[in-house]
Amino acid sequence: MRRQWTTTAGIVITALLTLFLLVPVLLSVYAGLTVNYARGISAGFTLDWVKQVWALYSDTVWRSLVVALMTLALTLLIGVPGAYALVRRGGRFARAVEEIVTLPVAVPGLALALAMILTYGGAGSFRQSTLFVVVGHVLFTLPFMMRSVIAVLDTIDWRTLDEGAASLGSPAWRRFLDVILPNVRPGIVAGSLTVLTLSIGEFNLTWMMHTPMTKTLPVGLADAYASMRLEIASAYTLVFLVMVIPLLIGVQLVAGLTEKRTAS
C-alpha cells in the first residue's frame, strides 16, 4: 500500500522530537566524562570531574536520598489511608477534599514555598531542619500518591472485598490491612516510584525553602550550573541521571506489569 504523506510526516516529526529530547542528554553525559569539552574528543575521557563532584557535592546526594525516603514514608502514611477514606466516603465532600489536596499540582511551587516560609519562617528549628524541605516535598508529591492509589481502588471492587471480610468477622482496621492494602499494592508501588522521582528532582519549592545546611541535589545542581565549569556541571548532571534512571525504569516496569494484569 502506498504510504500516506501524513504518515511520513508523522515519522519525521517523531524522529526529530526524539533527537531533540535525547541529544542534549547525550551531550551532557559526554561533557561530564570528557577531559576538556571545548577541545572535543581528542582531549580524551576521564572520571576526574565525577570525582570532583563527589568531593564537592556528595552531601547533597545523600540528603536528597534521605529527603526522598522521608517524603515517601510520609506520603504513604498520609496518602494511602487518606485515599481510601476519600473513596469510601465519596460524594461532594470527598471531591472537595481531593480538590484542596491536589492544589499543589496546580499552584506553582514558588507560591507554596512562599506561603510555607511566611507561615513557619519564625519557627527557627523547624525552618532550619531538613524536615521543612521534606514537608514541602510531601505537599507536592501527596496528590500523585493519592491519585495512583485511587486509580487502583477504582478498578477493584473494594466495597465487596471489605464486606466479604466483614462477613467473616474481621474488624475495620484488619480489613484495611488484610484485604484492602494488599490489593492496592500496584497503586502504592507506582505511586511510591513517582514520589521518589519527583522528590529527587524537586527544585521550585526546595530552592526557596532550603537553608545552606539543607541543600538537596537539584539545589546543588543550580549552584554548579551558575558557578562551576561546564564539565563539572555535566558530571553532576550525570550523577543525577544515575540516581533517577533506575527509578524511571522501575516506573515503566510497574506500568507494564499492571497493564498485563488488567489485560489478562
Binding site: 471492587d157 465487596t160 472485598l161 464486606e163 466479604g164 466483614a166 462477613s167 468477622g169 474481621s170 494488599p182
Partner: peptide, 16 residues
C-alpha cells in the same frame, strides 16, 4: 456484620 456471625456468599464472591 462483623459481630453478627453470619456466613455470606456474595454475587461476585468477594474472594480476596
Amino acid at each position: 456484620i462483623e459481630k453478627r456471625n453470619v456466613g455470606m456468599v456474595f454475587q461476585s464472591y468477594a474472594l480476596f
